[in-house]
Amino acid sequence: MREIVIISGKGGTGKTSVTAAFAHLAENKVICDLDVDAPDLHLLLDPQVVREGAFHSGNEAVIDRERCIGCGTCMEMCRFGAVDADGEKFRIDPLRCEGCKVCVAFCPEEAIDFPSRHCGTRYVSDTRFGPMVHAQLFPGQENSGRLVSELKKEARVLAERMGRDLILCDGAPGIGCPVISSLSQADLAVVVTEPTPSGVHDLERVAELCDHFRIKVAVIINKHDLNAGHTEGIEAMCRRKGYVLAGRLPHDTVVTEAMVRRQAVTEMDGENFGRRVNEAWTVIQGLLNAH
């Protein structure tokens, strides 16, 4: 079993468009969208849901006004500023509650309930490119690594059951909890970047995160013709750090045109942009086989 995670550090570099194209090109795989906060891959893959389930993550504290005597112990002990005064009594702001249970444990009246937190919905679907595991958090929920881990586990079970040997994951932007979870057990991180100050800066940070967890890094420079200097800088960084430069893609509106038509860019264009993506995929396959 091989697992590839496509990440970017910076958002909007073309991660999902590249993932959709790889989903088109790769054989015998399970597709997995790990950007559970703002998932977009389904917009191109048009998944038909086979199975769905509720996603629960941890618990949240809820003060029962009837039982609350207004002693303020909860407010004093909460390190997250999640307790607000509510007249003579108190209430918890669910947005700030970390679900640590400290207020529940120390409330002298046992007036604080601790129900599980229903954060979103997870799906297993069929797409024209094969099975897909994905999810959608309810807006404003904690983007926990826990959901990412559960999706990865589900994808792995599905791949084993169906005899598929590759898991292809679209990751989240950033370098925090969801990204760290998405990297666990991955054989290769493909970082899609762009030759801009933000692209370079964010590539450095996310690639260093991969180094920290000893995950092999391949880099794709999207819109490489936008700034030759930064493209050269990224290539030099790859040589210095031992990252594999898997491909350079031109700045091309065909990516958006494919998106509007709900297609992977390689389905629409086999010539310029599509051919470059195809070449990048060949490099990545070579890396996986050599692994």
Binding site: A38, L95, R96, P139, G140, N143, G174, G176
Partner: peptide
């Protein structure tokens, strides 16, 4: 980016 806890806060 996003609409989860960090963006909300």
């Amino acid at each position: 980016p996003g609409v989860s806890c960090p963006a909300m806060s």
